[in-house]
Each structure stands twice: as C-alpha cells, then as structure tokens.
Design a protein around this nucleic acid. Structure first.
Ligand SMILES: [Mn+2]
Ligand SMILES: [Mn+2]
Ligand SMILES: [Mn+2]
Ligand SMILES: [Mn+2]
Lengths: 228, 228
DNA sequence: TAAATGAATTAGTCGCGCCTAAAACGTGGA
DNA sequence: TCCACGTTTTAGGCGCGACTAATTCATTTA
C-alpha cells in the first residue's frame, strides 16, 4: 500500500510545474527564457526557481545550467494533478454555475491551487468522471494518466480537406467569443475551401454551411483531426 | 456614482480583518494577544501587521499602541465581504456537492479568499440569496448589511426554560458530529430539565423526546432564543 | 508612591518569490 | 579558430509575513 505523501506546495511552484509541462509538449528541454516568457517573469527569477525545484528531494525537475529543464516523474505527477484540477473546475463552472467557456480559464487558473482533494473528487463525480474539458483538452485521471491527442492545427489543412475540431486554445476570452460566433467549437466539422499564399487567410466552410475567412491567429489556435 | 474600488488584499490581511471582526462582537477594542491567540501567531507578528493595516490609506483598522484595535468602516466592509464568501461557500458545498456540515468550515476558510465576485454572485443565485449559513450564522448582504442575532448561549438557560437553537459554533468538526448525533442543529428546540451546581452538566430534553446531559463545552457552543 | 508583573512593542532575522544590473556562458558566422 | 551576440546565470536587493529575544509600557499591588 503506497501512500502518496505530498508536502504542500506553493502556488508559485505549482504554476512553474504546470508551465514546464505545457511547454514540454514535443520539445525535450524547456528553456529558461521560454518559461520566463510564459510566466511573465524575468529570466533571472526563473533560474532561481529552477535551482530550487531541482534541489528539492525528491527533485521536481531535472535542470542543467544553460541546457534547460524537464520535469521528473514526481514533477510531472504534480503538474498533471494541477491540470486535472484546472480542467475539472472549468467544466464544473459551465455545467453547474452557468459560466460561458470564455470566462472559465481565469477563475480555474486561481482555484486550481486551492481546492481540496475532496472537492476535486466531488466535482468529478458530479460531472460523471468527464474525459475532456470545455475546450476539448483531455482531463488527466486521478492516477496521472492523460490521453494523447494526435490532432493538428487547422492551419495545417490543405484545400479540400475536412477536419473535426478536437480542441481550441483557451487562454484568450476574446478569441473564444469569436469562435463561438462562428460555431467553431469541439465536434464541429470544417472544410478548407481555399488557401491564400504567404500566410494569407484560410477560407473554410462550416458544417452549418457558413463560409468564413480565418487569419492565422485563429487557425493556429484551433486543432482538428482529419475526417473522410 | 460611487464605484467601490478595492485593491487586491492578501489572504493574510483578509484573515486579520475577519478575526478582528469576530473578536469585536460586544467588546469595543480587540487586544493584540487575543488576536494572536485566535490566529495562532506570535504577538509580535500581530503588532507588526496592525501597524501596517493602520498605516494604509484608507486605513483598515484604528490602532493605538497598547490600547487595542478596531475596524474602520472600510475594514469592516472588507471583513463582511470575506464572511459573506465564507458562509455562502459553506452552504454551497452542502447544497450542491453533498458535504456534511462538519466538513465545510475548513474548505470555506481557504476558498473564501480566492473566489471571484462572479463566483460569489452565481452561488448566491443558485442558493436563492440565502440569509443564514448551515450553522445558523447570518450571511451578510453584498452591500455589507448583516442581521444581528439576539440569541444567548444554551448554558445560560435556567431549569424549565426552552430554547430554539439559532446557531452553533462551526470550527470544531468533532463537536459538530456530536451535535448531529444528538439532533442539536438550528431550529431544534431543547428544554433544560436540570442544572448541576459548580459548572456541572446541564440536562436537556430535545423536541424528539430524548434526554441528554451536556458539558459546558457543548452548551457554550450552542446558541438559542427563548421560546414560550 | 514605588515596585512587580504581565501585556505589548521594538529590534533583528529568516524564507519566499519576485526584481534589476552585471557577469559569464555557449554558439554560429566570419 | 575566434569573436560577437544572444541567452543564461550570478549578485545584490526588496516587500511580505512570519519568527525569537530583548525591551518598554501600563496597571496592579504593597
Ligand atoms: Mn495557476
Ligand atoms: Mn481549458
Ligand atoms: Mn481564511
Ligand atoms: Mn459557518
């Protein structure tokens, strides 16, 4: 019976681990400056924290000066726990309290650090142990398993190809409201009808029949899986 | 049009203001040591914080060296806002997530500092703008009005007198579970059938017909209003 | 009225997590 | 191969909110 004991971590530490996890997608090392950029801190501050996270035992990150950082198993487990909190909370706010999907990210980004295990369990039960959040992101299990998605950016589709939206980036409320207006939410199917050269807009047709031109800010924020 | 602008306050500051409010009941000054005792800090730490709260503008407390502290209007407004959060959250956890009344205090004591105004409004609406929390404490309105209760301790009842329970102290889960077992929750009516001298137990009869001897730890934690 | 006592304050310290400025590192182009 | 430039780290500092130890204050009692 392995009791998973975990000391209380500060919000700061949890945010670093989550940010490293999110930047690590694909890449095998996360740079100090990328992390600083994402967290909105000076690089020097990040270096200091990375040394601390590395020095802990068990250490939460693997960090080599000038080489970047990766999560250890322990660190990844914690990151996934916070991400589970975040995504469960987002969905709960919509399902139970009538938030719209552009309002939930900010609230979840705070509350994710302060709910108890019991609260987590209860909202998960209320929601029926859901597997994806309102923006299409998979919700890690309590054991720290997370589904991998093979989807690509909408911007990668060629003319004539169709894709079913799997997820959209959730950090910009403005963008989410725009996507709502266009009906571009998970499960919707879009077909690329035209591509203009040199990073010009992509023309799409939605399953509702509407046509639309989308800039790359949008098409880079929407992920799809190919259909047909 | 007076827009109530309020800078972000730390959890520490909010906890001080709430503690001062709660200790101020009746008393006109709160002592450094009483505050230190309640917050679990060294007195020296409390002195330091009081000086800071006093120095702010607008100042949140009136503090005179060696004379104790009271809340200013501004400070009281903030304390009531946090208390509103606390009591709404307690009730919400029970009504929406199936918590029992002995589990909610701890969770609410944390979350009260981190929910948004929007979250507050939504749970208040969900709950139907409730006026009391699960332990019988009044919930301040959004405008900072709080109902005053004229209730007395159960320990003050004389033999033959009956009281309807208005509220119970909510900080000790153990005690709350004991009260649950005895059916001593708000609205229940109890009659004192015997009092033993020298702080001995008080014998009561509940409206369910059961009789019980209660020590002063219990009878000091239960508040009643006289009936008949 | 002066000494004793307990409460409160001051003085100094510490860990956390951020900052800026200066130094050091590592790498791609000449 | 080496130098210039961008990245990263080091050095030093700051506000916050706790701590302990030493001191001062207010009040009570002799
Ligand atoms: Mn966060
Ligand atoms: Mn999301
Ligand atoms: Mn609190
Ligand atoms: Mn309560």
């Amino acid at each position: 019976m392995s009791v998973t004991y975990r000391k209380d971590l500060s919000r700061a530490v949890e945010d670093y681990l989550k940010a490293i996890y999110e930047l690590q997608r694909g890449r095998q090392q996360v740079s100090t400056s990328a992390l600083a950029e994402r967290l909105g801190f000076a690089s020097a501050s990040v270096t200091g924290m990375l040394k601390k996270l590395h020095a802990q035992s068990p250490s939460l990150v693997k960090y080599q000066r000038h080489r970047g950082v990766t999560l250890t198993q322990t660190g990844e487990k914690i990151a996934l726990e916070i991400i589970r909190h975040h995504r469960l909370i987002e969905l709960y706010l919509i399902e139970a309290l009538g938030y719209s999907w552009d309002e939930v990210h900010e609230e979840a980004d705070r509350l994710e650090h302060f709910i108890s295990e019991s609260f987590e369990d209860r909202i998960a039960t209320f929601l029926g142990e859901p597997e994806v959040d309102p923006h299409g992101d998979p919700i890690p299990t309590k054991e720290g398993y997370i589904a991998v998605s093979a989807s690509t950016r909408l911007s990668a589709l060629q003319v004539g190809e169709s894709g079913r939206i799997t997820k959209v980036l959730d950090e910009d409320p403005e963008l989410l409201r725009y996507l709502t207006k266009l009906g571009l939410c998970p499960q919707a199917v879009v077909t690329v009808t035209q591509r203009d050269p040199f990073g010009g807009p992509i023309h799409i047709q939605t399953d509702a029949g509407a046509t639309q031109m989308l800039g790359d800010r949008v098409t880079d924020s929407v992920y799809v899986e190919l259909v047909q």
